[in-house]
Simulated assay, not measured.
Amino acid sequence: MTADLKLGLNLGYWPASPPPGQLELVKEADACGYDSLWTAEAWGSDAVTPLAWYGAHTSRIKLATGLIQLSARTPACTAMTVATLDHLSGGRVILGLGVSGPQVVEGWYGQPFPRPLARTREYVDIIRKALAREEPVTSGGPHYPLPYPGGTGLGKPLKMIVHPLRGRVPIYLGAEGPRNVALAAEIADGWVPIFYHAERGPKAYAGALEDAPAGFEIACPVTVNVTDDVAAGLAVVRWTLAFYIGGMGAQTVNFHFDLMGRLGYADEAAEVQRLFLAGDRAAAAAAVPDDLADGIALVGPPARIRERLQLWRDSPVTTLLVGGIRDPAHLRTLADLL
């Protein structure tokens, strides 16, 4: 149970062009006490540039990547980026990392996807060493060896020129599978699930989180739709779920589809995927169960949202990363409800 549930503003990544009004949302979140601001990346806008822009227009809110994709940057480059932004923002950075999936990693970044857990462990270790700046950074791992074995033979261990403002920046891992979540509990400061069901999530992830240390953070994205039309609000959430279950991954390798089975929706997910891959996206969205959509979101008038917030307070989640909000007034409404 979370005694003091925090709020974060989740902006995600851009669609075809920058969404209007996001700076106003950020300023309102900063003004009304939101704990953190999160940006993402897929194969379009990057996660860091918007944070630097928003950080220049705010003074307090934490700046979090949710998530930086491992394959987009070497761990040394990520460490440099974090150290730079942390200085510019006065120590407000949270580094969220994720491995993405084979379609993006191999298709867009041109990097191998196998052994994502081992790669993540190595990646985080190098970042920790670089930011600690206790000695020149070396790594003997097979994925990111430093110095690089081969080439000219002139590579040498180096220590970051910049002295990081903080020698240990919080690192959160995005993860869905039980082993990935357990890795986050072992090596990171927090976990970012993509879909966490307020009622079914605690049981589904209990084993993976059993060794999480005290103070371990769970920052959970939650779509918020303040509306009197609950059915219409849930329909928006169902469209998102249908896209991830049916289209974000191959038919045989889709981590979001697998997660639905662990949450108890295996048969429903199979039907959603079948319809989506057959080209009937409207039917796929309609096939997403209402209680699944309702469990990962906060939808309805303020009174209903206030009631359903108790489910999240009763869960291990420590921060709600609210997304889908377009009206700055709704950010303050949610802050007032908490």
Rank of each mutant, 00 (worst) to 15 (best):
A250D: 12
G261L: 10
L263E: 07
L259Y: 05
A266Y: 05
A266Q: 14
Q251P: 01
F255M: 13
G249H: 09
M248S: 02
A270N: 07
G249L: 08
A270F: 02
M260C: 15
Y265G: 08
F257K: 12
E271Y: 00
E271Q: 08
G249Y: 05
G247W: 01
G249E: 06
L277Q: 09
Q251S: 09
Q251R: 11
T252V: 05
F255W: 11
D258E: 14
V272F: 10
A269Y: 03
F276W: 12
G247N: 02
G279V: 01
A278Q: 10
L263Y: 09
R274A: 13
A266W: 03
L259E: 14
V253H: 13
A270K: 15
V272M: 10
L259I: 02
G249I: 02
A278E: 09
D267Q: 14
G279Y: 04
F276Y: 12
G264A: 10
L259R: 13
H256L: 04
L259T: 03
D267E: 15
D258A: 12
G264K: 09
H256Q: 04
F257I: 07
M260R: 14
Y265K: 12
M260D: 14
R262I: 08
A270P: 01
V272Y: 09
H256F: 14
V272S: 08
G261K: 11
L263V: 05
M248Y: 13
N254K: 04
A269I: 01
G249Q: 07
A278I: 03
L263M: 10
E271D: 11
N254Y: 06
F255Y: 11
L277A: 04
G247I: 00
A278W: 00
N254V: 01
N254L: 04
G249D: 06
F276H: 03
M248C: 06
D267R: 15
L263R: 13
R262P: 01
R274Y: 03
N254H: 07
E268C: 06
A269Q: 04
